[in-house]
Write a protein that binds this DNA or RNA. Structure first.
Lengths: 131, 131
DNA sequence: CTTAGTGTATTAGGCAGCTAATACACTGAG
DNA sequence: CTCAGTGTATTAGCTGCCTAATACACTAAG
């Protein structure tokens, strides 16, 4: 599925939320497909079920997932996407954080570009392995 | 100087540490120059002095800053740089977080690249304005 | 019906980070 | 010397996040 980085200061429930959105965006999870049950995913990620629940609830409210009580949780038929303005805002802030870290580490624009390229290739390659 | 993002899950002391490294890397703070006193910077950033102290102490241990007790804190004569391996590691992880967020937001590689470019230009332009 | 597996909800406890309030040792200016 | 301004250190309290342990309502399978 995906991994939790305990060193990352971002809350675990947020990492799970982002991980699910990522898998859906990449096509690894298609509309209507079942996602792991809260207890299963919690055991898999070595995390408390309550933490997974929080992420699933947020994704459900956002229209990304759909719950069938007693049955399980599924990818929505038409998974909601962030609005164009929200998407830009998220991209802008994420890029700011990245560039700040890169410059602080002593890197220039060229190195930053290469790192992004490499990270993208890693992500796609990792997804290919699942299939 | 720089700003603290309270929405950023990263600890404030880490944001300060990164901010100082960034200013030094960009040349905005030159070797030997005085940095703001802990109390001054704390008041400026609307933050507790203890939090600034933690960042300064880490930077001092790392050889980036130098303390003259009773006088103040200064940029080291030869500010320490991350080792090449550490630099690569930091870049790699930062890029992973960025790409993950970008894809989760629904962006592709092209949009991610543009966002990085724009963020870099903003950072440099912001520094130019100080001078 | 019984059972196992869903999602949902509540309560309690621990940990890390931040704040606030002090206190201390040192330095340089007046 | 006196005093204001440094960095250093300690203590207490608060908040958000995570864990743990339950309990409840619902659904599908046996």
């Amino acid at each position: 599925m995906f991994a939790i980085n305990t060193a990352d200061p971002a809350p675990i429930w947020k990492q799970i939320e982002e991980g699910m959105r990522r898998l859906i965006a990449l096509g690894a999870l298609k509309p209507g497909a079942a996602v792991p049950s809260m207890r299963d995913l919690a055991r898999d990620l070595r995390v408390n079920p309550n933490t997974v629940a929080r992420a699933y609830q947020r994704l459900t409210e956002a229209g990304v997932l759909a719950v069938r009580r007693g049955e399980g949780t599924f990818v929505a038929d038409q998974p909601a996407q962030p609005r164009k303005s929200e998407k830009h805002e998220m991209l802008r802030e994420a890029a700011n954080r990245f560039i700040s870290a890169a410059v602080a580490a002593g890197a220039g624009l060229d190195e930053a570009r290469e790192a992004v390229e490499a990270a993208y290739q890693r992500l796609v390659r990792e997804e290919r392995k699942r299939a």
